[in-house]
């Protein structure tokens, strides 16, 4: 699998990351190297093996749906990078 600049751009967008010009070469080379490394898995015959999904308990653990207050409005806003008294403030979302 050849990792191109287009691959990096596509993945970066999906991951909501961006790479400057010089950084892009580095991440492309790193990914190429790491993919070469993990491609080794294809040598292993896993025909008939089920994918492992659960490590401990493989079933749902349900509880009663109880209404309770875990954190207050004020606490929820506590770590916000930008806020007013009631809301998280974010840059404008809708373009004019």
């Amino acid at each position: 699998m050849q990792v191109t600049n287009e691959t990096i751009d596509r993945l970066a967008h999906l991951a909501r990351l961006e790479f400057e010009k010089g950084e892009k070469d580095k991440i492309r080379e790193d990914l190429q190297k790491i993919l070469g490394f993990v491609d080794k898995l294809n040598e292993l015959d896993t025909e008939g093996v089920e994918p492992m999904i659960f490590v401990a308990e493989g079933h749902n653990v349900l509880r009663e749906d109880v209404v309770k207050v875990d954190i207050t409005h004020e606490q929820a806003l506590k770590n916000a990078p930008k806020k007013d008294s009631d809301y998280f403030r974010v840059p404008k979302v809708i373009k004019k």
Binding site: V38, L41, L44, T46, V49, P51, M52, I53
Partner: peptide, 11 residues
């Protein structure tokens, strides 16, 4: 990749 990885994990 992902499903293959999960199979290898079981293996």
């Amino acid at each position: 990749y992902y499903t293959k990885g999960q199979k290898v994990r079981q293996f």
